[in-house]
């Protein structure tokens, strides 16, 4: 390495550092707000430390505070059954992710590697689904789910996203396209069918993109709000985002319970941070032995 490059590296490190700060500051602000006393917040808008440090907001989110306590701290009068909602969110996000990624990978493989008439036209059609405004889909889908008798069931929440999303197919197709054909042709010559190539070759070789997609799908599904709000309102299927929506808007003009909202957001994001750290290790590992590098 030349001297020039190491100057470049220093600048690069500084850039990265600045980006990390910009990324993290709002999180610090959320933490600071979450540990503050909601009723004291407006009076100390510029305090960098929590205002009247308290765990009250976290207690409200976890459903440990009584309704009277919660209201005295500027919170809502709704009860929160945190662990149940957490379980529901885990169920919904996990099933959605597994189904969606798996089915999308199959379709993406068909679009990237199999030869069949009209393939590119069909792909273009699928791609067009990416552009369908959600305003078209929400109401008919809701009516369909209702007619299927799936309101207030996990199936109703999961079904629309379980089979595919245009994004997932598009994403994986682009990666499958860049996989070296020679390996595949070699496998073909060895007599492997498409199924074996798909499971034995394509999937392992695309471990990194698939894991990336799975994480993104999981996050999206976890954060989904409006659809589960419409379909799954009852306690036993209510997901975390819907339940925590109560921290967001109460009366039309009233401000939200800021401390509670921030605590709720942080707690809701926590499982995914854990998940990401666990998965990210696997991604790097899988790159190590996937053989194309």
């Amino acid at each position: 390495m030349t001297r020039q490059v190491s100057v470049g590296r220093t600048v690069a490190w500084i850039l990265l550092f600045v980006l990390l700060i910009v990324t993290l500051f709002p999180f610090y602000w959320m933490l600071r707000t979450a540990f503050s006393d909601n009723t004291q917040l407006p009076g100390h808008p510029n305090s960098l430390l929590p205002v009247e440090t308290t765990l009250g907001a976290f207690k409200r989110v976890l459903g440990l505070a009584s309704i009277e306590e919660a209201q005295a701290q500027g919170g809502s009068g709704a009860a929160v059954n945190f662990w149940l909602y957490l379980r529901n969110s885990l169920v919904v996000a996990t099933i959605t992710t597994v189904c969606q990624v798996f089915f999308s990978a199959m379709a993406a493989y068909a679009f990237a590697r199999l030869r069949w008439p009209g393939r590119d036209k069909v792909f273009a059609l699928f791609l067009a689904a990416l552009m369908v405004p959600p305003i078209f889909t929400t109401l008919p889908n809701f009516v369909l789910i209702k007619n299927l008798g799936l309101l207030n069931s996990f199936a109703g929440i999961i079904l629309p996203g379980a089979f595919m999303t245009p994004f997932a197919i598009f994403f994986l197709r682009q990666f499958f396209l860049s996989i070296n054909r020679e390996l595949e042709e070699a496998a073909m010559i060895d007599g492997a069918g498409h199924r074996r190539i798909f499971f034995g070759l394509i999937i392992p070789m695309s471990a990194a993109p698939i894991a990336t997609l799975a994480i993104l799908t999981y996050i999206n599904s976890w954060n989904d709000y409006f659809w589960p709000l419409l379909v799954g309102q009852q306690e036993n299927v209510r997901v975390l985002t819907v339940a925590l929506g109560v921290f967001r808007s109460q009366t039309p003009q009233g401000g939200p319970d800021w401390a509670g909202l921030m605590a709720a957001t942080l707690i809701a994001a926590l499982p995914m941070i854990i998940l990401f750290l666990a998965f990210a290790k696997r991604i790097t590992n899988s790159i190590g032995f996937s053989g194309i590098k």
Partner: peptide, 30 residues
Amino acid sequence: VPAVAACNNGAAARGDGEIIYWLWDSAQLP
């Protein structure tokens, strides 16, 4: 999996005398 879940949680039949009431202000919920 979802189908089984549906059996457990499918829209519970409501009694004739049970009505559902909505409001938006959580402060008035209690």
